[in-house]
Design a protein around this nucleic acid. Structure first.
Length: 258
DNA sequence: ATGGCCTAAATCTTAGGA
């Protein structure tokens, strides 16, 4: 079973790219982030023609997440508990082929410090509460998406550039480490412990050409899902296509449960 | 030279991204 995450940076600007990638790589499940679309304006038809079921959690202009799945999508939930005032569309989860699959678009948090950074940390606290429940459930669970977290020095081409940034500062990395310490496995690092690999390259300053990237899109596995991990790859070539997203897709393959 | 972009929405610029 192949499960992917792709920050698409505007679904309507990227639909042709997405359809080509889906046809070529045939993931079973995809979590999209930054669809920048409401549920009404999401281009469902073209994607459905490739056999995908679709659930979206969108808003106008910004943010927004979606699930595409060749399997049926059951028990859909959107949004994190803990703050009824928070209307930003950043969390979607469902039951798919006996797995729980959680997709997220974690707040950027810049500038740091400031109210946006406070929102990021509060969001991560609410995410942590959900993660505790997931661990306690003992259900095989995959949590994937754009975390806006550079976990370690080796996850940036030039870590010095990020020292005081909301993606890399101590408090952000501590919050991410807390999730790992609950028992989640970082799929990429489990299989590629020291490779310099990235999922994001800024549109500016020739970052792609210089390979000045960062690894901020992650796939976390609960213990029961981690036991089934077969492969994890980043489709970096997608960043070199015409009119690319600034993120590349990351995906895993899980062995079928027996 | 120490810059260089992109999307969506509402205009002919701005907010937001990372």
């Amino acid at each position: 079973m192949k499960i992917a995450s792709f920050n698409i940076n505007g679904i309507r600007a990227r639909i042709a790219t997405l359809l080509r990638w889906l046809s070529e790589t045939k993931p079973d499940v995809v979590i999209l982030q930054e669809i920048k679309s409401t549920d009404e304006t999401f281009p469902k038809n073209e994607i459905e023609q490739l056999g995908y079921n679709i659930q979206t959690h969108g808003q106008k202009s910004f943010n927004g997440v979606a699930i595409l799945s060749l399997f049926s999508i059951e028990d859909l939930k959107t949004g994190l508990d803990g703050d009824p005032e928070d209307l930003q569309a950043r969390w979607i989860e469902a039951e798919i082929n006996t797995l729980r699959i959680c997709g997220l678009y974690l707040p950027n948090g810049n500038p740091c410090p400031g109210p946006k950074f406070d929102y990021k940390i509060e969001w991560m606290n609410r995410f942590y509460q959900r993660a505790v429940d997931i661990i306690n459930s003992e259900q095989p669970t995959v949590i994937l998406g754009d975390f806006n977290v550079i976990p370690q020095r080796e996850d940036a081409a030039d870590p010095e550039l990020w020292t005081n940034d909301a993606l890399y500062c101590y408090e952000t990395r501590s919050q991410f480490r807390k999730l790992i310490n609950l028992g989640f496995t970082d799929a990429l690092r489990a299989l590629h412990p020291t490779e310099k690999v990235f999922t994001f390259w800024d549109y500016q300053k020739g970052s792609w050409q210089k390979n000045n990237g960062i690894r901020i899109d992650h796939i976390l596995l609960s213990p029961q899902a981690s036991d089934r991990l077969k492969s994890c790859q980043i489709d970096s070539y997608m960043r070199g296509e015409d009119r690319p997203s600034d993120h590349a897709p990351i995906w895993i393959e899980l062995n079928t449960d027996h």
